[in-house]
Design a protein around this nucleic acid. Structure first.
Length: 276
DNA sequence: CGCTTTTGACCCGCGC
DNA sequence: GCGCGGGTCAAAAGCG
């Protein structure tokens, strides 16, 4: 039901080493994070699994990096269920990831158009406790579709960034397990500045920064967490859950740098999507 | 009038 | 091949 796109790795014995998030959608791409810096600030992007793993191994720690995809230490994570079939799915997916970097090098034989279509953009998903579905993130979105979600009474809405030539998309749906939670999935990265008409006061988490916040017109509680099975999440979370809720916001706060960084997962502020 | 939203149709990938 | 589900298109309607 929930197709999370990243598998996260970290070294369990060395919390200072970097962590990589590998995209399942695009096996050639990954994001790299400082472990201590959470997922708020990717420190690099890449297009090769070997390179990603090389980065993640840069602290040369043992034992080898382990998947932390189902821990709450990430807003970006793997799927909600952890049954055996799912596990084997993940194993085969990991295999695909490994194969993927190879196939990316080789390139496939699809015609360009199909190739384009097949290539998925980097995705970033998170949950937010909110009364409204569409969170103000500073960008302008146009709705282009809505679909009923299987096994959920809540529809999924599809939005596209209205900026010309920007192909960033956004999916918004309400969790049927917890209807107060809104699941937002961004796909792609903005390569343009925020629309200048956007007022800081309109933007979603800005009230969080004020010393004495007036009640926002639209109330969003900044409570992001791993999408997926909440019980699983909480079980895995243990004492870390609070830290996750507080620190693992996908929104980055850079007070002296204006609007955008307040609002948008930093992954989307990267103007050059991948390092070569 | 221009932009956005709605919504049914269509396309595509995947599993059986 | 067929059915299903997810994602997108595009015409019509709505709105300021």
């Amino acid at each position: 039901m929930w197709d999370h796109e990243f598998r996260n790795f970290h070294c369990p014995t060395d919390h200072t080493c970097s962590r990589v998030s590998l995209s399942a959608a695009d096996p050639c791409s990954y994001m790299r994070f400082n472990f201590t810096d959470s997922l708020q600030s990717p420190i690099g992007y890449g297009r090769s699994l070997e390179k990603a793993l090389a980065f993640s191994h840069s602290s040369s720690s043992q034992p080898p990096f382990s998947s932390v995809g189902t821990t709450p230490n990430s807003c970006i994570s793997y799927s909600s269920t952890q049954d055996d079939s799912d596990k084997s799915n993940k194993e085969s997916q990991l295999k695909e990831l490994e194969d993927g970097s190879e196939s990316c090098k080789k390139g496939n034989k699809l015609p360009n158009k199909k190739q384009e279509k097949k290539h998925k953009e980097t995705r970033f998903a998170f949950m937010t406790k909110s009364e409204v579905d569409l969170l103000e993130d500073g960008y302008r979105w146009r709705k282009y579709g809505q679909k009923a979600v299987k096994n959920s009474p809540y529809p999924r809405s599809y939005y596209r960034c209205t900026t010309q030539k920007c192909r960033v998309k956004k999916r918004v749906e309400r969790s049927f397990q917890d209807p107060s939670m809104v699941i937002t999935t961004y796909e792609g990265q903005h390569k343009h500045p925020l629309p200048t008409t956007v007022k800081r006061s309109m933007l979603f988490p800005s009230f969080m920064l004020r010393p004495s916040p007036p009640p926002p017109r639209r109330r969003h509680e900044l409570f992001t967490q791993m999408p997926g099975d909440m019980n699983n999440y909480q079980a895995a979370a243990g004492a870390d859950s609070l830290m996750f809720a507080e620190n693992f916001s996908p929104f980055r706060q850079v007070p002296d740098n204006g609007l955008l960084q307040d609002m948008v997962p930093s992954a989307f502020l990267k103007h050059e999507p991948y390092e070569q």
